[in-house]
């Protein structure tokens, strides 16, 4: 193709939008190939583009339509939203942040995000705790022991105070809870998914009150790994700071002399 032919094509096709131009890819490819090697025609094409870009400017000159004054603020706000959604570029070193409204808005947004994450995490934890508690109750319902009525009075009461027990072993999913009620001396301790105690050892339950541990009983474990201890404290609604279920020889009087199975701390 000659330069003349190319310029005729450019003049004919320059005003056709991209979608229409794409309908004739062979011609467009030929034009592009020529422009890549012919500086004069490339400059000619750029001049055309500049001319066409001026057409809306000319329309703006003759039009009485005015740009809404509020629009700039909207556009700038959308930039803020975009910037907030994009990851920050790494900075070299650190400097005291200057006081400006944007910074504090960003900090506020970050705090809000952290609070939402914390709330979400807390809700997940609460949900998990509630489901575990339901599982413990279901286990207990199967036992139907003489202690059932006492246990339900404490466990099912809205006044119940709970201390959560988590597995102290990385390879175990054992868990449990210590329930007390402010207006009753009954203390109910439940645990589930417990491994069967090794030969020669039992699970002794230790509770700390006023900084002092007491061994409150040996927790029997059924074949499903469920254990229960119910006893009456010397006062209504005792508050225990810590609770330990320890695998140790029966009669051991030291909570630290053994393997912690589940543990909780207020």
């Amino acid at each position: 193709m000659t330069c003349e032919h190319i310029r005729t094509l450019l003049a004919e096709t320059a005003l056709v939008n991209e979608a229409n131009a794409a309908n004739n890819p062979a011609t467009m490819a030929e034009v592009a190939s020529h422009l890549a090697t012919c500086a004069d025609c490339a400059a000619w094409a750029r001049e055309n583009e500049r001319l066409f870009a001026m057409l809306p400017m000319v329309l703006a000159q003759v039009s009485e339509v005015q740009l809404p004054p509020h629009l700039k603020a909207k556009v700038m706000q959308s930039l803020e939203a975009t910037s907030a959604a994009q990851p920050k570029r790494p900075t070299r070193g650190w400097a005291w942040p200057q006081f400006n409204a944007n910074l504090w808005r960003k900090l506020g947004a970050a705090m809000l995000m952290l609070m939402l994450i914390a709330t979400f995490g807390w809700a997940l934890q609460l949900n998990s705790a509630l489901s575990q508690e339901r599982a413990l109750r279901a286990e207990y319902a199967n036992l139907l022991t003489f202690q059932q009525e006492m246990v339900l009075e404490v466990v099912d009461s809205p006044k119940a105070n709970k201390l959560f027990l988590r597995s102290a072993q990385t390879d175990s999913t054992a868990y449990g809870k210590v329930f007390v009620r402010a207006d009753l001396p009954h203390v109910v301790i439940m645990a589930a998914r417990l491994p069967i105690p090794p030969a020669g050892l039992v699970y002794q339950m230790w509770l700390m009150r006023d900084g002092k541990y007491d061994m409150v009983g040996v927790m029997p474990v059924n074949p499903q790994g469920f254990g229960l201890i119910v006893f009456d404290a010397d006062m209504n609604g005792p508050i225990y700071q810590k609770a330990l279920l320890v695998a140790q020889p029966a009669g051991t009087n030291n909570p630290n002399a053994g393997t912690f199975i589940v543990a909780g701390e207020r």
């Binding site: 809306p56 703006a60 629009l71 556009v75 959308s78």
Partner: peptide, 23 residues
């Protein structure tokens, strides 16, 4: 450039859509 973009869009579309175009 905003006015040229807005006027372009407002004449061919409508004022509300022209604002969206500018954005």
């Amino acid at each position: 450039y905003a006015r040229a973009v807005y006027v372009f869009a407002a004449h061919l579309l409508d004022p509300n859509e022209a604002e969206e175009v500018v954005q």
